[in-house]
């Protein structure tokens, strides 16, 4: 079972949280402002590895938190 540590509520099963997705990060190589906006809105890095992402504690404090997870094995990392 995946456990997320919420800064407000403590350690809870992942079922209590809503997934907010990876934090959009247009690559530095994109310099055109329109292209950066496009990337920010639509594109995903979708990394197979460590991803910085947002979670919402739906069953608890109703606050967003940032976590890092290795998507290749679906485990949170510190």
């Amino acid at each position: 079972m995946l456990i997320i540590t919420c800064p407000n509520c403590g350690s809870r099963p992942v079922e209590e949280f809503r997934f907010g997705g990876e934090i959009p990060q247009p690559p530095e190589s994109i310099t055109d402002p329109f292209e950066r906006d496009l990337d920010q809105v639509w594109m995903f890095t979708n990394v197979a590895g460590v991803q910085t992402e947002r979670w919402f504690h739906d069953a608890g404090c109703h606050r967003w938190l940032t976590a890092t997870r290795d998507t290749s094995i679906d485990r949170f990392v510190d």
């Binding site: 992942v14 997934f19 990876e22 197979a48 997870r69 998507t71 290749s72 094995i73 679906d74």
Partner: peptide, 9 residues
């Protein structure tokens, strides 16, 4: 599943 993952577990 809600969260993105490449795991096949």
């Amino acid at each position: 599943d809600r969260e993105t993952s490449y795991s096949l577990q």
